[in-house]
Nucleic acid binder design. Structure first.
Lengths: 124, 124
DNA sequence: GGCTATTTGATAATGAGATATCATTTTTGT
DNA sequence: ACAAAAATGATATCTCATTATCAAATAGCC
């Protein structure tokens, strides 16, 4: 994970331009438009490398395979479209959710996921 | 899933008494105290049956296998202890989180997960 | 209590995501 | 351009949760 290959560049570019967290499959498909023949193994390898270097972070949603997004964003949450399955970023956060923890529980972190329909998906 | 077996009774009892969502493994271990020799296949089968009958519901957390809890509870969220891995119920909900969705997005549902330390786990 | 269909438990099979392997290709320093 | 080291791609393998299989046990009805 030290050399600058077309594959690695393509994958970074894809993540940079997506604006939303992508699964390995999404990364593969998007990056293959830049590097035809790109293999899934390279996607896994590269994502691990980028994770190691803290250039990207993992986004995990219930019951889904991990997605990856650029690191360094400020605190945010996610919206999953129940029609197309894509996940988007949400800027807002109600904040201070730790207060929801019952007495005796010490909350250190929280996650919020909204589910619904994204602008690209017409009502069914 | 029509007969009342000791196994089925034990599994329902375990879920009823736990007060928190349990994974299949947790159900297995707890129910084996009531029915030694209980097999994991029976746990899966019974949980599916109870789901079908809407007696229980699934609780999915990011990166974890499904957990199960009694159905019919009012809207609530969950707390996962990062030390022992157990998941607890949270009564409170800030409410109206759908407003966090960006323009054009229609949120229909939300999930909140708090992470931290439960009363049973001393600070490390 | 005995009969029959259902359920159980042990374990093999499955499925999906992720990882390992390795010959070939590519990058990079000289 | 050359050589050495690293990365790639095809694919085999692994992992682990879940499901299927089937002989043996059991619930429920007479």
């Amino acid at each position: 994970m030290q050399r600058n290959t077309r594959q690695r560049e393509a994958i970074r570019q894809v993540l940079r331009e997506s604006g939303r967290p992508l699964s390995t499959q999404e990364v593969l498909e998007a990056a293959q438009k830049r590097v035809p023949g790109l293999g899934i193994a390279t996607v896994y390898r590269t994502l691990h490398g980028l994770l190691e270097e803290r250039q990207i972070t993992v986004v995990e949603l219930p019951g889904e395979t991990p997605r990856y997004e650029l690191a360094g964003k400020h605190h945010h949450h996610h919206f999953r479209c129940t029609v197309c399955g894509r996940v988007f970023e949400i800027e807002n956060c109600p904040g201070n959710l730790e207060r929801l923890a019952p007495p005796g529980f010490l909350a250190e972190r929280h996650e919020i996921v909204l589910y619904g329909r994204c602008p690209g998906c017409p009502a069914g």
